Simulated assay, not measured.
Amino acid sequence: MGRKRLLIKRIDNPCSRQIAYSKRGKGILKKATELSTLCGADVGLLMFSPTGRLTSYTHKGRVWSSSVFLLYFRHLDNEETLERKLCELNRKIYEAQEKMRSYSPDVSNIYSIAEAQHHQQFVTKAIQRIEKFKKTKLLEKETSPSL
């Protein structure tokens, strides 16, 4: 006496597929309306029929549909932006770790004279930059008017 359970699989007949889409699509639109009315939820729905026709729904009506979908896309952009920022931070951490290895290399991992010379040059150049920085700061301190 109840409804017969349907096997969920693609309908091969295009005419039957369009009829099923039409009936089920109306049911989904009704459920979306009920959900937005009963719960006060922001509901946005996009459906493309088998023929490619677009059906859209938002709880505020068609006038507001673009703003609801823009909110969704802005949310996606924020996630992508955060993901990009996270990747950038991970890259900076990796670069900083590589730089620290150059300042304080694990000598047990240096296997050639060329590697040792490379690390020595790196540290020597870093010391030169620090000395230059110190000199400019000392000069600034000497030339600045004291209060």
Rank of each mutant, 00 (worst) to 15 (best):
L147H: 14
K85Q: 15
P14G: 07
L29A: 02
Q117Y: 03
K135W: 09
R129N: 05
T58G: 04
R53K: 10
Q121R: 12
T58P: 00
R53Y: 01
Y103T: 04
G2C: 03
L35Q: 03
S67A: 10
R84H: 13
K60S: 07
K30D: 04
I28E: 00
L7C: 12
L82E: 04
K141G: 03
F133C: 12
F73R: 09
G2D: 00
L6R: 05
P105I: 09
I127T: 08
L89T: 10
G52T: 01
I19R: 13
L38F: 07
K4N: 05
K141M: 06
N90G: 02
G25A: 09
A96E: 11
K134D: 00
I127G: 11
E83V: 03
L70K: 13
I110C: 07
E80Y: 13
Q128I: 06
A32N: 01
K137N: 06
R129S: 07
K30H: 11
I93C: 14
V107M: 02
Q18M: 07
N90F: 02
A96I: 06
N90V: 04
Y103E: 13
R24P: 03
D42W: 00
N78W: 01
E131S: 12
M47G: 04
R74P: 01
K141C: 07
E115T: 02
W64L: 11
E140T: 14
S144E: 01
K92H: 09
L35T: 02
V107R: 02
M1P: 08
A20D: 01
Y21M: 10
K30W: 02
S112H: 04
P50M: 08
E34T: 10
S56Y: 00
K60E: 03
K4W: 11
Y21C: 11
Q97L: 10
E88T: 08
R10T: 14
G44D: 00
G27D: 03
H59Y: 02
A96N: 06
N13Y: 04
F133K: 14
Q97A: 11
T143M: 14
I8V: 15
T124N: 05
T51R: 04
L45H: 05
G2S: 07
Q128R: 05
T51A: 05
E88N: 11
R91P: 01
K4R: 06
E140G: 15
G27E: 08
K4L: 05
I110Y: 06
R74N: 06
L76P: 03
D106G: 12
E88L: 08
Q97Y: 05
S67L: 12
E95H: 13
N90S: 08
Q120D: 06
C87M: 14
L35V: 04
L35N: 01
R17Y: 06
H118M: 05
S108L: 00
T124L: 01
K23I: 15
G2T: 00
L86Y: 09
L138K: 08
A20I: 03
L139N: 14
Y21F: 15
